[in-house]
Amino acid sequence: MPLFCFHCLDKTDGGAVLRAKARPAHLEWAVSLGDTIRMAGPLLAEDGETMIGSVFLVTADSLAAARALSAQDPYTQAGVFGEVKIHEVRWSIGDGKPA
């Protein structure tokens, strides 16, 4: 099954507040996806603490299916992100490579 990367950057104006409000629902949603998510986590500012976005590696049947999955994210629905890029990727190196 194809693998897709979601690279999501928070809005610079108000994104942090929206992120904090939507975080519990976002985490619940992400956990509910089980093995669909191969890797996920926050993107951090240079201070190593402040969350400024999210990155996901997910399996989906197509780019359209990946976009639909991204649209279900409570962060997306709450308007946290100012920019979302979704690209198909091929896992070449590293632990956890899909069979």
Rank of each mutant, 00 (worst) to 15 (best):
K97H: 06
F6I: 15
I86E: 05
A30Q: 09
F6D: 06
V58T: 06
S54N: 08
E28W: 03
V31M: 06
A78G: 09
E88P: 00
D47Q: 03
S62M: 05
T59V: 13
L43G: 06
K21V: 13
T50G: 02
G96Y: 02
V55W: 05
M1K: 11
A68L: 02
L43F: 09
A22S: 15
V84G: 00
E28S: 15
F81W: 12
T76E: 04
V17I: 10
G96V: 01
V80L: 07
P74T: 01
C8R: 15
D95M: 09
V17Q: 15
I37H: 07
L33T: 11
S54R: 07
H26N: 12
P42R: 00
A22I: 07
F81C: 01
A45T: 03
V58A: 13
Q72A: 08
L57K: 04
E88Q: 11
A66P: 15
L57S: 07
A25L: 13
K97L: 09
V17A: 15
S32D: 04
K97C: 09
H87Y: 03
K11Y: 13
T76V: 08
S54C: 11
W29S: 06
V55N: 10
G79I: 03
M51Q: 10
D47S: 08
V55T: 14
I86M: 06
A22F: 12
V17P: 01
L33Y: 01
D73Y: 04
G96H: 01
T50K: 04
L3F: 10
F81P: 06
G94V: 03
D13F: 03
V80Q: 03
A65K: 14
G48L: 02
T76F: 07
L27T: 05
A64C: 08
Y75W: 11
D61R: 14
F6L: 13
E49Y: 10
V55L: 12
D35F: 03
Q72P: 13
S70R: 14
I52W: 10
K85C: 00
I52L: 09
D13W: 09
H7I: 08
F4L: 11
W29M: 06
A65L: 07
M39R: 08
V31H: 13
P42W: 00
E88Y: 01
P2S: 05
A16D: 12
A45H: 14
E46I: 11
L63H: 10
S62F: 11
